[in-house]
């Protein structure tokens, strides 16, 4: 059975605008090109491309410190690469950074051969980072929940994008 309801890029960008996102700090992964085309066309969003994911956490923290509102958009593989930035900046400095993480390898059917998926949630739990799963448009408002959680706790929050290989790209 395939996933039927999809997560549209429009729904994600609607959430960004609803939450007043000013800067999208990102490194593209393999499935999100349509999303980037829409973001590029959105005048309220400043796109900040990075060369490696660890940069994205530090840049987002700087944007926050400067009074603007960022979102980090990377894949779970990049989350692993960002480990010391998440520890030393996002967690130690209590920065309410929301990270949208492409959940490579995720499947609702359980077993996955992809270690990127198997390690994602255990690592987030080890760091004590709250996370939400978004699979389709009906889940998109969890991005707003993530921002509320980040603001309330003054800590980073992750939104796992489980639909990565379906509607997120066209």
């Amino acid at each position: 059975m395939t996933q039927q309801a999809l997560l549209s890029p429009e729904a994600v960008i609607k959430e960004f605008k609803k939450n007043g996102i000013t800067h999208v700090v990102y490194l593209p992964d393999s499935e999100t090109n349509w999303m980037y085309q829409l973001m590029e066309a959105e005048p309220s969003i400043d796109l900040v491309p990075v060369t490696r994911e660890g940069e994205s956490i530090a840049i987002a923290a700087g944007v926050l410190a400067g009074g603007k509102k960022p979102v980090v958009l990377i894949q779970n593989t990049g989350l692993f690469e960002s480990g010391d930035s998440i520890r030393g900046i996002a967690l130690d400095c209590a920065m309410p950074i929301v990270m949208l993480i492409g959940y490579r390898g995720w499947t609702r059917h359980g077993a996955t051969p992809d270690s990127a998926a198997r390690f994602t949630e255990p690592i987030l739990r080890a760091w004590g980072i709250t996370y939400y799963l978004v699979e389709h448009d009906g889940d998109a408002d969890r991005i707003s929940l993530a921002y509320e959680e980040a603001e309330r706790t003054k800590m980073p929050v992750v939104v796992l994008v489980g639909d990565e290989y379906h509607g997120f790209n066209r």
């Binding site: 800067h23 660890g54 940069e55 987002a60 700087g62 410190a65 400067g66 603007k68 930035s85 900046i89």
Partner: peptide
């Protein structure tokens, strides 16, 4: 002043974020 140690050389990345926001 934002003295930023650790995080594997990310002071310039943090500063870029501040520069874009301000």
């Amino acid at each position: 002043d934002i003295p930023l140690g650790g995080a594997m050389g990310k002071a310039s990345s943090f500063a870029l974020g501040v520069a874009l926001a301000q």
